Simulated scan of single mutants.
Amino acid sequence: MLVQPFADPRIGAVSGNAKVINRGGLLGRWQHIEYVVGFNLDRRLFDLAECMPTVPGAIGGFRRDALVRARGVDDATLAEDTDLTMALCRDGWRVVYQEDAVAWTEAPATLGALWRQRYRWCYGTLQAMWKHRSALTQSGAAGKLGRRGLVYLLLFQILLPLLAPVVDISAL
């Protein structure tokens, strides 16, 4: 299912549907809900807006020509999958979501492991956004990533989570 979209020569990468396999405890169930509702819903939106910022390492496919043009995976950020995906979008490749391509991933089982994963994801995403910030003023596919994808990430994955403690304190 993951390779079918590559029949279109404009497709540079395909993001699949990651599902949590270890749903045993409360933490596992929460992450399962987050993956199903959050991540995969976001991918549908990014696919429609043609500004996919991340092809996850757990379930992603890349066209070799796209990787060569992007000069491969760069280790300049902690979120190399996000950095690579943004580079492909800026280079004019389409990155799409294929819901039927499913992979099962093991989510962190402890709060400490979850914290380390999310810190790496958040910091790495910030690094990738900073690295590709010039997409905000570019045209074409790069501009779609910049004005749609980067703005969405800034609002909903950075600023809104920073406000969550304020909402919690207000509720108390």
Rank of each mutant, 00 (worst) to 15 (best):
D8K: 06
G143T: 09
N40K: 06
A164Y: 01
I169G: 00
E34H: 14
S170N: 07
Q157N: 14
I158C: 05
D42M: 07
I158R: 08
G112Y: 00
W130A: 06
V55I: 15
V36G: 04
D91H: 07
A70D: 13
L26W: 06
A66N: 08
L155P: 05
P56L: 01
L153M: 15
E106W: 02
D83I: 00
V96Y: 01
M52T: 12
W121H: 05
V167L: 02
G146C: 04
E34P: 08
I11W: 02
L172R: 12
R64T: 14
Y152I: 09
I33F: 12
G25Y: 11
E50A: 13
Q127L: 01
Q127R: 01
I21L: 12
W115R: 15
I169P: 02
E106F: 02
C122D: 04
I59F: 03
V68W: 10
W93F: 01
L154Y: 00
A18N: 14
G72W: 01
P165I: 02
L126G: 14
I21M: 11
G60H: 09
G38M: 07
Y119W: 09
R44M: 15
R69N: 10
L84W: 01
P161I: 07
R10N: 10
A18P: 15
P9A: 05
M1T: 14
T77R: 04
C122N: 03
P56D: 02
L159E: 04
L150M: 08
N40G: 06
A49V: 12
L2P: 07
A109L: 11
L78A: 10
A107H: 03
L48A: 11
L159K: 01
K144H: 14
D168Q: 09
Q117Y: 11
Q138M: 05
F46Y: 15
V102W: 09
N17L: 03
V151T: 03
D83T: 00
I33W: 15
A107G: 02
F46H: 14
A142N: 06
K19I: 10
R71V: 00
C51P: 11
W130V: 10
L162H: 04
R63E: 08
L150C: 05
R71A: 02
T110E: 06
A103M: 05
A135L: 09
E34R: 15
T105F: 05
F46I: 10
A49G: 07
P53L: 11
A142R: 10
L41T: 13
L136D: 04
P108Y: 00
Q98D: 13
A113E: 15
Q98E: 12
F6E: 07
L114K: 15
A164H: 08
R29I: 03
V68N: 08
E99L: 13
A58V: 12
D81F: 02
A142K: 10
L159S: 03
V167N: 02
I11Q: 12
